[in-house]
């Protein structure tokens, strides 16, 4: 356990190059997007001189590496700049949009864990049975289904057909919790299906390995009850696999959110980054990417810490 602070320290050091690399890659890629932000900024019918002036004003005439350096310097000071389109501070835009995305991702992860893990356990404890076959084949299907297609099916049936859930939009969680959850349900379910399938498959195979292990046989030889064997020893043994998997799914949920937010017209971080990228609103894209990278790394760090607490072998490696 004494290795834990060292682990955290090591991870925090790794954070820095990852953030710089990720934001730089995005910065460079944005140059490839067709169109010129200076032209966009100058508005319709702007003169050539006006466009040049704006290019200078925003530093867009500088080499790429200088532009990036300037951005990074400001970002370190907590200033992510202003939107080229709306002139609103990027921080403010993110603060408005991100909660919606986090709500959908968290909601989705909870649904997926509550369904996916029991399915995996159910299948693993009945290998070769009909339930196992059913879970395995449905999971294979679930992994393959695109979430946007599912989203469209869900909207068509549950929103437009039965009027159970709103088809589009989002509500603030703190002001209208019920409305917020109701609006977030369909996007969360659409995103969760793939995660459920992934969790069920991985938990199943990890648990099968534990159940057939020699130390699991020892538990039987000690006279433990099947329930205590499965829920105490079985799950604790697969918890590392499970947590690592959940960490990966968080990344997947944030990237999936870009598409899902578009389908449901949700003003989240995903739709913000998509809209800004299309309109060459560099500062916003950069800001959102930075925040998402930090979130993903923080989640992975949390996973590593929990793993180290749960499994003595993980802490020492």
């Amino acid at each position: 356990m004494s290795r834990l602070p060292a682990l955290i320290g090591r991870r925090l050091w790794q954070l820095l190059p990852i953030i710089i690399f990720a934001t730089f890659v995005v910065f460079s890629l944005l140059q490839l997007v067709p169109g010129d932000p200076a032209v966009t900024l100058a508005g319709d019918y702007a003169s050539k001189e006006r466009i040049e002036e704006i290019r200078k004003l925003y530093g867009l005439d500088q080499p790429l590496i200088v532009q990036y350096g300037v951005w990074l310097l400001h970002a370190v000071k907590g200033d992510l700049g202003k939107s080229l389109l709306s002139s609103a501070p990027v921080i403010e835009l993110i603060a408005q949009r991100l909660p919606n995305t986090i709500l959908i991702a968290t909601y989705s992860l909870i649904i997926a864990t509550l369904i996916g893990v029991p399915l995996g356990v159910l299948a693993a404890t009945r290998v070769g049975s009909r339930i196992d076959t059913l879970v395995t084949s449905v999971a294979s299907l679930g992994v393959a289904l695109p979430s946007f297609w599912l989203a469209i099916i869900l909207v068509a049936n549950l929103s437009l057909g039965l009027h159970l859930f709103p088809a589009t939009g989002a509500k603030p969680l703190l002001v209208d919790p019920k409305g917020a959850l109701l609006s977030a349900t369909l996007p969360a379910v659409a995103l969760a299906v793939g995660v459920i399938a992934e969790l069920a498959r991985q938990v199943r195979s990890a648990l099968i390995e534990v159940l057939s292990s020699q130390h699991y046989r020892t538990l039987r030889a000690k006279g433990l009850s099947p329930m205590s064997m499965l829920w105490k020893h079985g799950l604790r043994n697969v918890s590392v696999t499970l947590l690592t998997l959940l960490g990966l799914q968080v990344n997947r949920l944030f990237s999936g959110a870009v598409v899902i937010e578009a389908v449901f017209a949700i003003p989240g971080a995903g739709s913000l980054v998509a809209y800004s990228a299309i309109n060459k609103d560099f500062p916003v894209v950069q800001g959102v990417v930075l925040v998402l990278v930090v979130i993903v790394i923080a989640v992975n760090l949390a996973v590593d810490i929990f793993n180290a607490l749960l499994d003595p072998r993980a802490a020492s490696s």
Partner: peptide
């Protein structure tokens, strides 16, 4: 039956296995 055997296993008959490396649960 199984529940009857559970009262025997570990209590009235103990067992040691060949591989001490893998016979103990690594995470407890």
């Amino acid at each position: 039956d199984e529940s009857g055997m559970r009262k025997v296993r570990g209590r009235r008959i103990g067992m040691i296995f060949q591989e001490p490396m893998s016979a103990l649960d690594p995470v407890f």
